[in-house]
């Protein structure tokens, strides 16, 4: 399944460090596993919402991995998915409330996509593939690696889209005023195009490196 870890890469490194690094690139949620496509396509029209979504997802991922790992020996086989969902839903609600309280404008801008973190298969995937089988520190490192990798990928997509759609980064104009904005980049079509091109590039460089 997507998210299974490749133990051969852990050779020569502590397990937690291998888990941390793996999530950044080798098993990157977006570019390598194609997980969490809903926020990937929906919130990457600009860098600020992409970064916020990445931070919120990382927060939920870290909290849920820690809790699932801590109670892994108590989990009953057929109820484990229910427990994962319960844990994730609780921390997504907390993240949503924190955003509403401290970043109200960004919370409005992200709209339904923050509550939708609950159904992000990256989080439940890591609970199943790592946290329910590994210790707390390994699970924490895995969550940080996957969360940072997810955030990084969102930011790469958002950088390309915001630059071409508005000629700006973080809403600060970068390209000259003569630049003709590519409006399509703000739309879902722009998200699909950018993701497709970046996936193609990542595959190309990965094959070249082998």
């Amino acid at each position: 399944m997507a998210g299974q870890t490749d133990n051969s890469t852990t050779a020569g490194r502590p397990a937690w460090l291998a888990h941390l690094i793996r999530g950044l690139w080798q098993e990157n949620a977006i570019f390598r596993q194609l997980l969490g496509m809903c926020p990937t396509l929906a919130v990457t029209a600009a860098l600020k919402p992409a970064l916020t979504m990445g931070a919120a997802t990382t927060f939920v991922l870290v909290c849920s991995n820690l809790v699932v790992s801590a109670m892994r020996k108590l989990l009953v086989g057929h109820l484990r998915i229910l427990m994962f969902t319960l844990t994730i839903a609780a921390f997504v609600t907390v993240a949503d409330l924190l955003l509403q309280a401290f970043l109200p404008e960004m919370s409005e801008r992200l709209g339904p996509y923050v509550p939708l973190i609950i159904v992000n298969c990256l989080i439940i995937g890591r609970a199943e593939a790592c946290a329910s089988r590994q210790g707390v520190w390994t699970s924490l490192a895995d969550a940080l690696g996957m969360g940072l990798g997810f955030t990084l990928a969102l930011c790469i997509l958002a950088t390309v889209r915001e630059l071409l759609a508005d000629g700006a980064l973080f809403e600060i104009a970068i390209l000259p005023a003569s630049f003709e904005n590519w409006n399509v980049m703000k739309l879902p079509a722009g998200a699909f195009l950018t993701l497709g091109i970046l996936l193609g590039l990542s595959n190309h460089f990965l094959r070249k490196g082998k």
Partner: peptide, 14 residues
């Protein structure tokens, strides 16, 4: 019991 205990704990947290 774990589902019930977790529901209570997460409910309190939220």
């Amino acid at each position: 019991w774990l589902v019930m205990a977790a529901s209570l704990a997460f409910g309190l947290l939220v």
